[in-house]
Write a protein that binds this DNA or RNA. Structure first.
Lengths: 223, 223
DNA sequence: AAGTGTGAAGCTATTCACAGCC
DNA sequence: GGCTGTGAATAGCTTCACACTT
């Protein structure tokens, strides 16, 4: 079964995504089975954690053997909602927007850009892989016409909330937010924040106060 | 005092970075004090959480009044290790590397790029703001000469571990890793992973299984 | 009256450890 | 013998609630 028995924590979801990546690597390497220990080691967590995470969704392994690689990958894709296409609107075609647009993984995983918005007059009207770049003012119409379900928001802070409101009005339910700002959204809308400043600064903290940050998990008893 | 009394969790560190951003906004808006409630609201957490986080490092507020904005910002900069410059080597000058290089916040916060490496022959030899781009093979020498303390790693997966080893050999102690791969590093080296695939896929999970993901915190009793 | 600082309680996540199956 | 699945134990984080200060 792949029905979530109970609440699934954000950390579990993020690990599932890592497991999926490892499984696809293993499949390319021709491995047919993998133990929780091996999977954990490549994903940077513990064997017990792998088993716990997977057990939330069903029993996918065989005792004494481990997990069959391709079927488990397929299960994880189903669990994560990656067996279908997702229509995505790209709001902001600057550096980060472009990087994501060209990220190969993006399309391989079934994320399809259905609209691109940007206010740069040099960009407006251009086509990227058949999608015409439109000015920000047309966001709501563009998102609605494209049937966008999620958005990537990578715009200047000053316009971020206004564009968020337009996205919500257009029926978008999930936003990957690169703007270093807490977006206000109604209940039921998911915002996933990626904040480069936080990433950098937490690295600075770790280096300047090496004794003060919490440790990392090890693997199972025997190495 | 700004000495970390005890272990500081990763989540606390990330929130401190958010608080700092909010405080700097407030300072620009001319606010001289802020309550934990107001700070929490702009940072997307709870008032109790703000007070708990700050209390790990000292007593910065005045009862009945709140926190003085500029002094608290200064304290947070000291706590986070942002009162000094950090020498950073940029490994990979592709889309993401470029985006970070041009991220204004990066330089404002005292992160200084001392070396840039890339194997693209079109880029090698060019100068970006006075820093010459060198081929990947020169990474260890370049990092050592520049006295790099941290690195931004944004290269193809195939070369990531080799370059990581070179970074470690050159004395780099912190890596902001954009490569979707678990880097192997010795004890004492901090790796901060940013994985776009994880971000996108966890958004897909949230949208496809809306009932199954854990909720968000509210603010203090009264709104 | 407003708002911090903090012990205690509550809750969530991780790790342990072992019964059970291959 | 190897390895999963999982209840129980532990650890860690968040929220509560209130004494105390301005």
């Amino acid at each position: 079964m792949s029905l979530p028995a109970r609440r699934v924590s954000e950390s579990t979801v993020r690990r599932l995504s890592l497991y999926l990546r490892v499984l696809e690597e293993l499949a390319r390497e021709g491995e047919s089975t993998v133990s929780s220990r091996a999977l954990a080691s490549r994903a940077g967590t513990t064997a017990a954690q792998v088993r716990k995470d997977l057990s939330l969704f069903g029993s996918f392994g065989k005792r004494g053997l481990g997990y069959a690689v391709p079927p488990l990958a397929e299960q994880l894709r189903a669990i994560m909602g990656l067996s279908r296409k997702w229509r995505v609107v790209l709001v902001g075609a600057g550096r980060i927007g472009t990087a994501l647009f060209e990220y190969p993984h993006f399309r391989e995983r079934g994320f399809e850009i259905v609209a691109i918005l940007d206010d740069d007059p040099v960009k407006v009207g251009k086509e990227w892989r058949g999608v015409r770049i439109r000015p920000g003012a047309e966001l709501e119409a563009a998102a609605r016409e494209g049937g966008a379900e999620m958005a990537i928001l990578a715009v200047p802070a000053a316009v971020a909330q206004r564009l968020t409101d337009a996205l919500v009005a257009a029926g978008v339910r999930g936003i990957l937010n690169f703007v270093p700002l807490q977006l206000q959204v109604p209940e039921g809308i998911t915002v996933n924040n990626v904040n480069m400043a936080v990433e950098l600064e937490s690295l600075a903290f770790a280096l300047q106060a090496p004794a003060a940050h919490s440790g990392r998990p090890r693997s199972d008893k025997a190495i």
